[in-house]
């Protein structure tokens, strides 16, 4: 397969969905309910990504101590309920991951 053809096509397919709404902004008026709906995008999409990559490992639901990704995410979640500092949340999550790898 031509890797440069792949990259060129991927560039177009990645840029287009990123640009379309920006390009149309100001030309179309978004209804208020849709505008409100879009404010939930970060929570919806990011939660789905987190769930996909922490609760599901190697294509299966993994609710066990061997799932270090899940332990790290739970530690980060608990920290985030107390502190709003992104840096602290990330540090505790990573520390939990490293400890789980070493101890479990």
């Amino acid at each position: 397969m031509n890797e440069w053809l792949l990259i060129a096509a991927m560039t177009v397919l990645t840029f287009t969905p990123r640009y379309l709404p920006f390009g149309m902004a100001g030309k179309v008026k978004i209804p208020p309910i849709l505008e409100r709906a879009l404010t939930f995008v970060p929570i919806a999409v990011l939660t789905s990504i987190i769930t996909q990559s922490s609760l599901i490992r190697h294509g299966e639901l993994a609710l066990n101590l061997a799932n270090h990704h899940l332990l790290a995410v739970l530690a980060a979640f608990a920290t985030a309920l107390i502190s709003r500092q992104l840096f602290i949340i990330v540090t505790v999550g990573l520390a939990a991951f490293i400890m789980a790898k070493w101890l479990l």
């Binding site: 970060p42 929570i43 990011l46 990559s53 990704h69 985030a80 949340i89 990330v90 505790v92 999550g93």
Partner: peptide, 23 residues
């Protein structure tokens, strides 16, 4: 498994923004 860094980063963005019942 270094991709875990990204996940805890997203936790740090999502959780502090969970304010309303709807969130």
């Amino acid at each position: 498994g270094l991709d875990v860094a990204m996940l805890v980063g997203f936790i740090g963005i999502v959780v502090p923004n969970l304010k309303l019942r709807a969130d």
